[in-house]
Nucleic acid binder design. Sequence first.
DNA 1: TATTGTTATACTCTATAACTATA
DNA 2: TATAGTTATAGAGTATAACAATA
Lengths: 147, 147
Amino acid sequence: MAKDMQEITDENLRQFAGYNMKRAFLMVRDDLGRTLQEFGLRMTSFSALAIIIENPDVSQSRLAEALHIERSGVVVLVDELESADLIARNRVEGDRRQYALRATPEGEAVWTRAEAAVHAHEERIFAGLGAGERQRLADLLRRVGRG
Amino acid sequence: MAKDMQEITDENLRQFAGYNMKRAFLMVRDDLGRTLQEFGLRMTSFSALAIIIENPDVSQSRLAEALHIERSGVVVLVDELESADLIARNRVEGDRRQYALRATPEGEAVWTRAEAAVHAHEERIFAGLGAGERQRLADLLRRVGRG
DNA sequence: TATTGTTATACTCTATAACTATA
DNA sequence: TATAGTTATAGAGTATAACAATA
């Protein structure tokens, strides 16, 4: 008995950019998740590490804003990175409420290797798109939600 | 005291298409979620309803494949749509294991209204992009993951 | 034996709210 | 009073695994 007598179609949904975006994002997320596992990172901790390296001594609250998540979520994230000795919580003189987050040498090294792995992941997942198309995709995505 | 003495940057991350995709997707997801609430639908139940209308008498297993989720997840989804009288589980003659899913007249009516609302939502969220750019974005997204 | 639908359970990600210590 | 960080809790969304009925 033919298993696929009738192919299921999704024309109703393919007309929506949001549908195509979700499908594409889930593929990226899965492959990226596997890619980062090797470094003990998740998508969000990879992002956090990137922000901390780029903005030394950033506070947890500012990091939360940059990542668009709540401060309570950052605590767990920073705990995770600190436990792995990838970043350190340093005290700020003049304000004992906040921490200055900074990547350790190992954190910088891991970031460098993870960055390369993520580039390889993007080569894989966007193999169907040329360099110009990838750039155009990134540009279009960056303009979403800014009427 | 200037709250934003130093702006947090994310150049390390903006180079990655996946980062831009996540950011864009989360904005779409949030606005779409609010849009669908009015119809008692979630992103996934909206998609399920669309597939069922387009493919009358589809089984739950085939629906699971189309939505790229597990069969167990479809049970909850179909329960939800059936409770709202938007679809019906009909018995299949010749195979008493499976159901033939079909939208009710009300399901079709709700879909039509929801579809219009989702179009309005996309007009809103993609306001910064012209029609041609939206089409290009959709095309590019559909080609992700297909080396 | 394989497939369909089902249930129970667990995991990931994130938000909310209440708290503390500082300012 | 306001802010930074923390904790506990809860809610989506989805996966895994075991199961009954049917093929």
